[in-house]
Amino acid sequence: MSERGNLEISNVSKSYQVEGKELRVLDHINLKVAPGEFISIVGPSGCGKSTLLRLVVGLDDNYGGEILLDNKPISGTSLQRGIVFQDHRLLPWLTLEDNIDLALENSGLPNAQRRRAVAEHVALVGLTGFEKVYPHQLSGGMSQRAAIARGLVSRPEILLLDEPLGALDALTRLRLQEELLRIWRAERVTMLLVTHDVEEAIYLSDRIVVMHSTPGRIASDIKVDLPWPRDRASHEFADVRREILRSMDAYSSVAARAA
């Protein structure tokens, strides 16, 4: 097992300037992710989940605190850190294969190896046969899978996933969850997944981080100690689910009282 992909977020705070006023979006976030771990983040809309991922991937370096990958502070973007955006963000003018290949542009791999890596990852997400197809000819689920392939092809140590299955129908979603697990095991990559779906989080993760909002902070960090493959209908599953919902609910009852 790879010992890389060791992420440490310590004391991270982030504010935006909105109309001259400071809007605190993240407040003293502390999170340690071990190599190869699968962590999910759940929390209400607007609590700063995407903002946190943007900081970790390096799109924004205007924050307080420290983000370390393998004990080194991150700076800017890097091929070590991949992200799958919620809107798949495939470039419409590139074929599926060229979209995935774009992630290897600066990988330093020779062409033959690049081609092989692309073909492997197309196969990994089950899109063999669609290499020459343009994004508008793909379904939403296929586009998401292509985006996941692009995130993985450069072999990042850590892959950040921002609601990658958000806009999918229930069945496709279940199928892609299955694929995510398979990919995670095959690639042994550290995964940080943002989702609104508590069941999805429990089904996939080693740990689940619950966030509360205004300002965004971590409310609880729950270890999921269920054996694989997980049974969504089991009592233990329901117990974890109750625990997480309670942790999320604490927020809304506080908010309700405050209102």
Partner: peptide, 10 residues
């Protein structure tokens, strides 16, 4: 968004 993607892909 596409410019951001290019940034992420270095």
């Amino acid at each position: 968004n596409f410019i951001e993607l290019a940034d992420v892909l270095t």
